[in-house]
Amino acid sequence: MTKIVEGLEISEETYVINRALLVKYANASGDQNPIHQDEAFAKSVGLPDVIAHGMLTMALAGKFLSDISGPENVLEFSAKFIKPVVVPANTDVSLIISGKVGEISDGRAKIELLAMCNEVKVLGVAKGVIKLQ
């Protein structure tokens, strides 16, 4: 693996989100809110369509972080949910995550993450702290 140094840009990964994945995430996480599965319900509460769980988007960004350090070395992880990821029926939506290494001290590195969907930033100030090996 590339050595983690301050300023290192970590190349983007694409994660596919579709309705089937939302059902799988709902079952794995216990979050069965119908706005993530039921199109008629989502529209009835003013959403454009079914939207992904913010925590699914964050879990995928967490996978990106885990791939840098190993999941056992993630010490902190936080994000704001600034835009919904809309998931129309029969559509694969691409979530593109990239990262940059921030400050390194005491064997820990800050990682800034960028999560984009249809050229819109969906997570705000997404960042993690990893333990360096």
């Binding site: 794995a28 967490g62 996978k63």
Partner: peptide, 20 residues
């Protein structure tokens, strides 16, 4: 939980597993 995000290491939980 891991399989949803394409994680293949099942010896430790993914960072956001706590939410479940």
């Amino acid at each position: 939980f891991a399989e949803v995000i394409g994680e293949t290491n099942f010896d430790v939980a993914p960072p956001t597993f706590t939410i479940s």
